[in-house]
């Protein structure tokens, strides 16, 4: 008993200092007005009420929440779909397989700060590489990081109708740019899928081939079901990660969340509320709401853990 505790003591201390105490403190501060310099002042549920009242509006927490939801709703499924497709492709036994794998994986090891600098340049509306590529396939140039309106928003209907009457089609905005950047770094998901694919027994494919199944059928009826636990795991991990996105939006918007607040993600809003607006209480309350939302996701993950744990051990 004592030895075990001794071995675990670094983590125990860390757990108490870096988790338990912060949790208690932040819960208490979330019920206070607190600027970190003067003493906290109890205000009850005020901060939470303010947060709730901002939901559905285009300000403060409401704006950050809708931005984050948009980003997560687009980037997580897209990463999964593209990740699975790429992994399937990359599992094909062709010459140069490892080169292809490396090239797809490489972007995901680029440090976020460097990647953001790179994308700031690639996404330039006037002479950025991405718009150059779009013009190559006959698309209008997009405003990317200079446009607050996103592609999948109500206002895009107007843009589409304008396009029909001959105006340039400028759909994609800053959040879409962020999604693009995220998908570029999908390589680490691909690696996980690749590992899972290599665990799928060959016998399954061979049996299917005997039945004369096509590649697409094999993909749908063997690869996807066999991958489903890993896909689910990546969905939840991707969700947690996307909700915590901070560095990329900080660098892309130079810490402002511009243009038009469209890059104001929850984590950036939290940072600015705390250290620019001196509202530790409000920021703490925000982090607690965030926590509860993620907790629900985590519980879902654990409820279903038996499915994916089985494969991880097998791996």
């Amino acid at each position: 008993m004592f030895t075990g505790l001794l071995f675990c003591s670094p983590w125990m201390i860390g757990f108490l200092l870096l988790f338990v105490w912060p949790f208690v403190a932040s819960l208490y501060w979330s019920l206070c007005r607190f600027d970190l310099i003067n003493r906290p002042r109890w205000v009850g549920l005020d901060n939470y009420l303010r947060l709730v009242s901002e939901i559905g509006t285009d300000q403060g927490f409401g704006l950050a929440l809708s931005n984050t939801v948009y980003y997560a709703a687009l980037s997580v499924p897209l990463s999964v779909v593209i990740g699975v497709l790429l992994a399937t492709l990359l599992s094909a036994k062709v010459r140069g397989q490892s080169v292809y794998r490396t090239l797809v994986f490489l972007p995901s090891v680029i440090p976020v700060v460097a990647a953001s600098i790179l994308w700031l340049w690639l996404l330039d509306p006037n002479d950025g590489l991405i718009n150059y590529g779009l013009s190559w396939i006959g698309m209008d140039s997009q405003n990317w990081l200079n446009q607050s309106r996103s592609a999948f928003s109500g206002e895009s209907v107007g843009v589409l109708s304008g396009w029909i009457s001959g105006e340039p089609l400028r759909l994609f905005g800053s959040k879409d740019a962020l999604v693009l950047m995220t998908v570029w770094g999908v390589g680490n998901f691909v690696v996980i899928y690749l590992a899972a694919i290599s665990d799928i027994p060959n016998a399954l494919y061979e049996a299917a081939e005997m039945d004369g199944a096509s590649s697409i059928r094999k993909f749908w009826h063997i690869t996807i079901p066999m991958l489903s636990p890993v896909i689910f795991f990546n969905l939840v991990m991707g969700l947690i990660r996307s909700v915590q996105t901070f560095t990329s939006v900080y660098v892309l918007s130079e810490g402002t969340g511009q243009p038009g607040g469209s890059l104001m993600m929850l984590s950036l809003q939290l940072f600015l509320s705390a250290f620019n607006d001196f509202e530790m209480g409000y920021a703490s309350a925000m982090s607690w709401i965030l926590f509860v939302v993620l907790l629900i996701a985590t519980i879902v993950l654990f409820r279903t853990s038996r499915y994916w744990v089985h494969y991880r051990v097998a791996a």
């Binding site: 509306p125 006037n126 200079n146």
Partner: peptide, 16 residues
């Protein structure tokens, strides 16, 4: 001039 044209044009102000 159209808001999107302006947004596109504007970007050039900072990034050239």
């Amino acid at each position: 001039y159209g808001p999107d044209n302006l947004a596109a044009f504007r970007q050039g102000d900072q990034s050239l």
